[in-house]
Write a protein that binds this DNA or RNA. Sequence first.
DNA 1: CGTCCATGTTGGAGCGTTCCAACATTCTTC
DNA 2: GAAGAATGTTGGAACGCTCCAACATGGACG
Lengths: 341, 341
Amino acid sequence: MPARKPTINDVAARAGVSKSLVSLAIRGSDRVSDESRTAILRAAEELGYRPNAAARSLADRRSHTIGVLLHDLHNPIFAQVLDGVQEVVREHGYRTMLVTGDETSDREAAEIAALLEFQVEGIILISHDLDPERALRVARECPVVTVLRGDISGAGIASVCSADTEGATLATKHLLSLGHTRIAHISGGVSEVARAREVGYRQTMAESGLAGQEIVLPGDFTEAGGRRAALRVWEEHPDVTALFVANDLSALGALAATQGSGRSVPQDVSIIGYDGMSLAALGSLTLTTMVQPLEEMGRQAAGQLFAKIDSPRRRAQHVRIPSVLHPRGTTAPPPTSAERQ
Amino acid sequence: MPARKPTINDVAARAGVSKSLVSLAIRGSDRVSDESRTAILRAAEELGYRPNAAARSLADRRSHTIGVLLHDLHNPIFAQVLDGVQEVVREHGYRTMLVTGDETSDREAAEIAALLEFQVEGIILISHDLDPERALRVARECPVVTVLRGDISGAGIASVCSADTEGATLATKHLLSLGHTRIAHISGGVSEVARAREVGYRQTMAESGLAGQEIVLPGDFTEAGGRRAALRVWEEHPDVTALFVANDLSALGALAATQGSGRSVPQDVSIIGYDGMSLAALGSLTLTTMVQPLEEMGRQAAGQLFAKIDSPRRRAQHVRIPSVLHPRGTTAPPPTSAERQ
DNA sequence: CGTCCATGTTGGAGCGTTCCAACATTCTTC
DNA sequence: GAAGAATGTTGGAACGCTCCAACATGGACG
């Protein structure tokens, strides 16, 4: 007794009808008589029949699947975006195929290639590390929308991201308005998002009469990177009173390192992050940060994608969503010189 | 000019060979002459050919894919397990198909059904919420391994999980050894894992002469749940000096609520969690917790799965891995009665 | 009472691959 | 120099499904 999986033909034979009718019944067509339908569904149930998705998408030439690349599963903000994406994708009767590109750009390219081989009908990149050329090649094969990375402009790639420069400006101004002047920035590296946030910081410092006093330490958007960069700040610039960190995950690292160096937050040092990572709102010190509406961004991205799928000639849109300052427990006025003693 | 995707036949025509030879060349067979290979690969490149995974897995009757269900993307510990899983899956030349079952058991069942329709060759459940009956039905269709949930025993479902009762015992003993006696437990609900951790707590209390003094508040493994439960503790049992929380995510919630109630940690209240979530090691107060080797557990689970795939008659193994106490910043001796005043 | 229509139902072609048996061609070996 | 082995190459049959044109059947209608 071979344990071969039952096919549509087995169901047809058992129900005493043709495979075509089984196909219709399984998919819930209304042009099947009640009698046949019952017989077919019972036969399918008894045999433990399960449609073969590969055969189906081959015959159908549609996979009903959207590919989603998550840049890094360890940063929980991507999960928040994904929630929004999934919601819309399901509404449209599609399913998602998830893939992670942890770390390397080559790995991401390979995972995207896999998605394309699966004939996904669209791809959402929840952040990514692809060079524009590769991304554009992908976009020629199927609709692509990026979230949280909007740098590949001009081409057929839509994007939904935050107004990073403006957000960084607000963050810096928040620190300035509290009275800080010795403000350092821990950057996120050289990606477009990181650059935009850095620019917001630099511009605001310059416009506030602090030109030449910018301090930028390279980071990489990870907690460990934030920790390292903060340690360097306290070594090289011990008189800094405020840190604007490029993202929340790094800010948590910087927070730990700062407290580890004997400074207390926010009495001695203020720290502000960027992202709106829900876990950072938690804990003893809730991180002051620039909050992005992550789920909503996911929903919009998926919406864009389906719009593109429905009318392929449509122009790619680039949506920028403002981030909102959420002052929480890690920012306060700087210590007075008396206190600093 | 229809934008139909090029197939193996198009490549064959362009390279002037048969489709069979293209098939061989694409898959890197060594029985293709260098001359043919070069011509074929060039033709493929020029046409932008991409093998169709659906057709491939249909013809091959193998998908080379392992399905992975992530119970909840928001708890970062699952990402840590996934890292281990991916590592081994890739070593075996397979790919993973990720799926999340956020919240409901029905959704999980639906996602698993989708995996089976894709003909995945095995399934790894990184935690799950299935009732045993459903899980067993799945296991009859393809090899299944569960991680962080080992309750479906007896059947063909292998598991890799932590020794929860023993770990909970160690956690409770840690608090006892610091001098605490008024110790409350915030549970994780009624799942097997939650039960096992609760049992460890109850047994240890009883064995330490504190029978009848157990305090258990229901939680649900989420941060919000931990927060709510902690609030109830401080309302109903203000003289408690230590909390053993069923998992780290909830412990972070409980920590926030505790500090919000005006108590300081660990001076007034000690808190210990369970899991080894890397983010909880971060921040101002690093959470004392029972650490599980999450990546290693992922690797072992994938290893078990491939063992089962290679020899289907093999008995399902149930691996229990001990958790290790990591005393960090949230536990300390209880305040003396003088201090409490 | 023949015609038309609506309602169910069917077999065959096709989706893009892989596998297999069979076939050329060239290289060894005695 | 014939037999056999090694090396490349090929067309056709699957894989399990969906689509389509065509076909029964049984009323409704003039």
